[in-house]
Structures are given as C-alpha cells and as structure tokens.
C-alpha cells in the first residue's frame, strides 16, 4: 500500500486530492455521499464577509469538454459559514481550507480575521483570480505588487496555511507566482478558470447573463498543466494543480509536472464521488507500479 500522505509546510494531508472551491459547496453537503475526512482537503466555496447573491441567470453554458460559469461568487457569508457549516465540518473531521475573497484588501482581512476565531481550519486559499469580480474591472491576481501585499497581509494574521490561487488569465504567470512566494505564501494553487464566452446564435445574445464566464473541465487541462510546469521550474513553493482533472491518471500527470497536490473541480458535477475515487485509483496506480510514496511523483517529469 503506497503512502498517500503529502505535506505542505508543516501540515500533513491524508492524500493529495482536494475538492476545488466552488464545485463542492461548503464540503459538508457531500458527507451524505461519502466520509469527507477521507479526501486530502475540502476547499470551500469562496467566502466573503457579507453574503453575496451572485450574478443573474443564466449562469452556465456547456461547451465541448467543458463548462462556462458566471456564478458571481454567490455565498452565504463568513458568519453563516461559521455558524452553520463549521460545526458540522469539525464533527466530520474534514480537512478544511477556507477559500476567501473580498472586493478590496480589507475585505480579505475581515474574512480571515473572523475565521481565525474558528477551530478546525487547516488554512486559507486566497481567491485572487475569479474573473467574475468587477472590482475596478481587473482581478487582484494580475498585479504582482497587489498579490505580494495581500499575501503578506494575510500571512501576518495567521499561523495556518496560506495558499494563493492564481488566475491563468495573465501574460506571464511567473512574476505573480514569485509575488505570492515573496508575500509568504505556503503554496500556490493553479489554475482558476479561463475567461471565456459563448453566443446563443438563435437569439444573437451572449449565452451567459454576465457575458463572460470562467471555463473549466477537460478542455482546460493542457493549459493548467503548462502553468504548473512553468511555475515548478522557477518558483520553489509547493503547487496544487487544478484544471480538468477527471481521473487518477490526470491527477498523477499534474504531480509529475510539479504539483504536490491536486484539486478536482467540474468533475464533481459528473460524479460527486470523484475526489474519493481518484485518490483510491491513484493509490492503486502506485501499487501497480511499485511506487512506495505518492510524494515521489512530484516533479518527476523526465525532460
């Protein structure tokens, strides 16, 4: 039986498979399907200080091997999360990383400040990349100075893991990743969705009410793999690979390219059990290939 444990900073995860933010609700909703303590980590739905009602519908459009969404960060707000979800997540003994965001730097700070008073969180994933936020028309994750300052600010507030989730919608990801490292991040997760669009030809209207949305699913996997590989070459920080992972083979490819962990996103829609099954199938792959530890896979690409 291969050792499936992986470490980021001092934190040890039971396996490298997490559920991606926005595709797994607040985590506890999946407890009726399986024991959520058996997956590496639950990355919660993005949390803001105040509840957000999100974008008008339609919000989804299916594409070739993928899915465009413009949910608009709808969430119940950090207070309701702490009151309604955290007690159940603690009871379920889940490894929880809270995905957090704000419309300005203070917004991030207020969410983390509130969560610091809750037990049972492994860390924070800073959403710097959601393409739906209309704060000044540009997302935080495109400016290295802002990324560094925001990461440093959150770093100074917590001993828990600080993970920075990057957008692929930039010309060069390396200065952004460097800024996250300089700001004191423990890890980088990449990638968030790719900005896209769909047209309803019959109505001659955008398919999404928000016009643009984030593309996810197998369609984006090669882009995400490339980004992980690029960051791994240049930045000495654990990476969490996200983008179109459907099965154990996909997940292991991300690890070979440089990821320490992976997150499963849209595949959760096709199969609510996918995180659990992918972790199980990865272990089987390692056993079949007589690889003693999953950690050995990270960055093992031969080039």
């Amino acid at each position: 039986m291969a050792d499936m444990r992986v470490k980021i900073g001092e934190y040890e995860f039971v396996n490298p498979v997490g559920a991606a933010s926005g595709t797994f609700a607040y985590g506890i909703e999946y407890q009726e399907f399986f024991d959520i303590s058996k997956i590496g980590a639950v990355f919660t739905k993005g949390l803001s200080y105040e509840p957000i009602i999100g974008n008008a519908p339609p919000r989804l459009h299916e594409t070739a091997s993928g899915l465009l969404n413009s949910i608009g960060l709808q969430n119940i707000g950090v207070e309701a999360f702490c009151a309604e979800k955290m007690p159940l997540l603690r009871e379920a003994n889940a490894t929880v990383i809270a995905n957090v965001f704000g419309s300005d730097a203070d917004g991030y700070k207020r969410v983390v400040d509130r969560l610091e008073r809750e037990d049972g969180l492994a860390g924070y994933e800073l959403n710097l990349s959601c393409p739906n936020v209309k704060a000044g028309g540009i997302s935080f994750g495109t400016d290295p100075k802002i990324v560094r300052a925001l990461t440093a600010q959150i770093r100074s507030m917590t001993k828990r893991l600080v993970i920075v989730k990057l957008t692929p919608n930039v010309t060069d990801i390396i200065p952004i990743a460097q800024a996250a490292k300089d700001g004191g991040a423990d890890a980088i997760s990449a990638v968030n969705t790719l900005l896209g669009m769909a047209v309803d030809l019959k109505k001659r209207r955008p398919a999404l009410a928000n016009v643009y949305g984030g593309l996810s699913g197998p369609a984006i996997k090669p882009v995400a793999l490339r980004v992980i590989h690029q960051i791994y070459q240049k930045i000495d920080l654990p990476l969490i690979g996200i983008g179109g992972i459907r099965d154990a083979k996909d997940a292991l490819e991300f690890m070979v390219a440089g990821a320490t962990m992976v997150q499963i996103g849209a595949q959760n829609y096709r199969d609510p059990f996918s995180t659990l099954n992918i972790a199980r199938d990865m272990e089987k792959y390692l056993d079949d290939h007589k690889i003693p530890s999953v950690a050995e896979m990270t960055g093992s690409l031969i080039s």
Partner: peptide, 16 residues
Amino acid sequence: TTMGCGIGSCLGCVAQ
C-alpha cells in the same frame, strides 16, 4: 434550467 451538478452545489441553475 441548465444544471451543473443537480445536487445544490454549483449554484449554476438558479432562478431569480
């Protein structure tokens, strides 16, 4: 509506 997950997770199918 078009649904992502069908089980309440993705918030893609909302009605206003």
